[in-house]
Amino acid sequence: MSLPTAVKIVEVAPRDGLQNESAFVPTDVKIELVNRLSQAGFQNIESASFVSPKWVPQMADGADVMAGIARRPGTIYSALTPNLRGFEAAQAAKVDEVAIFGSASEAFCQRNINCSIEESIARFEPVAQAAKVAGLRLRGSISCAFHCPYQGEVSVESTVNVARRMLALGCVEIDICDTIGAASATQVGRVMRAVAEHVDPAMLSGHFHDTYGQGVANVLAALQAGISIIHASTAGLGGCPYAKGATGNVATEDVLYLLHGMGIETGIDLDSVVDTGQWISSHLGRKASSNAGNALAARKQLA
């Protein structure tokens, strides 16, 4: 299959990127991060999470973040909403899209939320119905779609099954997530093609972590499988608080360098993203986890 001519990048640094930080990131820093990303041209920014602050304290200021950002026309500002209470808070904060998150791994479901995959999907039905009534975009994320920290490799059939259930709930986009970053390019291609037999590939996205350094390779494998929506995190920020060993998401700078180098349009200013990656990494007190971002930043300093 030929590569797409244009790709939508869903920028996840403000939510998935920051949720695992040990020290609380100030609200004004989160707001500036979202604003910088908006100005760089992203079509969709995961900006907040309306989950219990007991479980994810880093995201406790979601409403304040949404109230403080400067919204760019045409940009979708989304938030994670695990239940109806979270949905109502997100709706009050005027998000453009709500995201529900399930797992393709039975072991992951049982270990983290004490229920089966089927029971977890059933819990999303009130959120899906509320989103439909409110006219809000609904996105579904499938964690551990390739590998699980508890059961190892996840069957293709399980990932396909959850994707079909997400589609039935009314999700307009479905994220196939390599939560622990253990997938290979061959596996990514196999799973994406299998899911695309049941869900329009235009509705599917690839969400990859770079734990084993395979993030960019897996992005390319997804593109070759007909996927044209990719999740990425500026400076490679991220990790999953519920998945032991999961490190950062694939870096947006690395993904943009790949796509632009292949002549694929994104509508995003790479230089601006590089600057933002260096800025947020400096605030967090560490070097950005982006090869392309750090190389381009060093080249700027030498110019």
Rank of each mutant, 00 (worst) to 15 (best):
A13Y: 00
H231K: 03
R72S: 11
I117H: 00
I121N: 03
V219A: 04
A246N: 04
G152M: 10
A89D: 13
R193T: 14
Y150P: 12
G277T: 04
R193Q: 14
S289C: 08
F42E: 00
R15Y: 04
I113Q: 05
V7P: 06
G17L: 07
S120D: 14
D271E: 15
G236R: 02
G170A: 10
T276Y: 00
H283V: 15
V10Q: 04
E197Y: 09
A243N: 03
K54P: 11
Q301I: 12
G277I: 01
S143D: 04
A23K: 15
L302K: 13
V25F: 09
N35R: 07
Q187M: 12
T5G: 12
V29P: 02
S143F: 03
G62N: 11
G245I: 05
R190H: 14
S38Q: 05
A295T: 13
I142S: 01
A130M: 06
S281E: 07
R190C: 07
L3H: 07
R72A: 12
G285C: 09
D275L: 11
I268Y: 11
V127T: 08
A90P: 12
D28R: 14
R71L: 12
L258C: 11
S2A: 13
G267V: 12
G135H: 13
S290L: 06
F87I: 06
A130R: 13
G245V: 07
A182G: 01
V273N: 00
H209G: 07
V216K: 04
F108M: 11
A298N: 11
Q39K: 15
V172S: 15
L84T: 07
I174R: 03
A222E: 01
V274M: 10
N112M: 13
F24M: 13
G74W: 12
Q224R: 15
V188E: 00
L136T: 06
T211W: 00
A232N: 06
R15V: 04
L302P: 02
R286T: 02
G239F: 06
L284H: 09
Q91V: 09
V191R: 00
I229Y: 03
V195Q: 00
V156L: 09
P241G: 05
V219N: 01
F124D: 08
D269Q: 13
W279Y: 09
E97N: 14
V199K: 05
G238D: 01
V154R: 06
F124G: 02
D16L: 03
A297M: 08
V10I: 14
V273E: 00
M192A: 04
V10W: 02
I76K: 13
A232E: 03
G86R: 03
G189E: 02
P53K: 11
A67G: 11
P201F: 10
I121T: 09
I121C: 12
G236V: 07
T5Y: 04
I142L: 08
I9Q: 00
N249C: 05
S49I: 03
G261V: 03
I121Q: 08
A60R: 15
A93R: 08
D96A: 08
A70H: 14
L302C: 11
M166R: 09
V12I: 15
I9F: 05
V219M: 04
A60S: 15
W55V: 11
E153G: 02
A145C: 06
